[in-house]
């Protein structure tokens, strides 16, 4: 089943064009790795999908409903209904620092979906155990390591029961020794058939976990394919150059 369809997406900031004619589709169970050099527009593309940025043109359909159609947006309410099908995990976690882990998880659910506190707490425990963080339920975010924060952020996103999870470089702000615990959680989600779009510099994740890889450069999807194809035999020179440079490091 097709969950996301993006057609001819265009986006600029001021006079600078950042995304040009982005087209792709995401199916149920896909794990899409988005790779590419810095400034290629990967984050911007992800932010357009969840309505943190407005596009200048093109269409985004989420489960066949238009978040934007030919550059025209519906009302804010219907946009919120559509973006509610997605969750997002940020590079800097963006946990709410004034709330405990427990409250970070239950507050949005109780506020948005009017779920009772006891139901929300039951779910919070489930989600925290998924990411191995149930012991920290009463901790404040500042008391957690980066890897722990990101796992809590993933649990918080899962609380809203999204059909699609978006990740923007979820491990880039972490010390190298902490990336593993977050990648392990994401791997587990992938094997649970959670649909994900992951912007990442972790090539091993893209190669081993993704079902499809998009390579972006200069605001375009330059190349797209199965991980084994794209990594072992990249067709486009830009892809070849990029892979060569990241493999060297």
């Amino acid at each position: 089943m097709q969950l996301i369809e993006v057609k001819d997406l265009k986006k600029g900031f001021g006079t600078v064009s950042v995304l040009t004619n982005i087209c792709f589709t995401v199916n149920q169970g896909d794990v899409i790795a988005v790779i590419g050099p810095s400034g290629a527009g990967k984050s911007t593309m992800l932010r357009c999908l969840i309505d943190l940025e407005q596009v200048d043109g093109g269409s985004i359909f989420v489960e066949s409903e238009p978040l934007v159609k030919d550059g025209i947006y519906p009302s804010r309410t219907s946009r919120r209904k559509i973006t509610a099908k997605m969750g997002m995990v940020f590079q800097n976690f963006n946990l709410f620092p004034h709330l405990s882990v427990r409250k970070n998880l239950i507050m949005p659910l109780m506020t948005v979906k009017k779920v009772s506190q006891s139901d929300a707490e039951t779910l919070a425990l489930q989600m925290l155990s998924k990411v191995g963080m149930e012991e920290k339920i009463d901790a404040m975010p500042n008391a957690l390591s980066g890897g722990q924060k990101q796992r809590v952020a993933i649990a918080r996103a899962l609380m809203m029961n999204p059909d699609i999870l978006l990740f923007d470089e979820p491990t880039s702000a972490l010390d190298p020794e902490l990336t593993g615990e977050v990648l392990a959680v994401m791997k587990q989600l992938a094997s649970d058939r959670v649909t994900m779009i992951v912007v990442t510099h972790e090539m091993s994740f893209a190669r081993d976990v993704a079902t499809r890889v998009l390579f972006m450069s200069d605001g375009c999807i330059t190349e797209e394919g199965l991980p084994q194809e794209l990594f072992s035999a990249p067709k486009h020179p830009r892809t070849q150059a990029f892979l060569r440079s990241v493999m060297e490091n």
């Binding site: 969840i50 309505d51 943190l52 919120r80 973006t83 509610a84 997605m86 969750g87 997002m88 940020f90 800097n92 963006n94 946990l95 709410f96 507050m107 949005p108 506020t111 948005v112 979906k113 918080r156 996103a157 809203m160």
Partner: peptide, 19 residues
């Protein structure tokens, strides 16, 4: 990022402001 996190979790503006 706090506004953005609140938004992607589905909070509307008033809810995000208050909570």
């Amino acid at each position: 990022g706090q506004y953005e996190a609140a938004k992607v979790l589905g909070l509307n503006r008033v809810q995000a402001t208050i909570k």
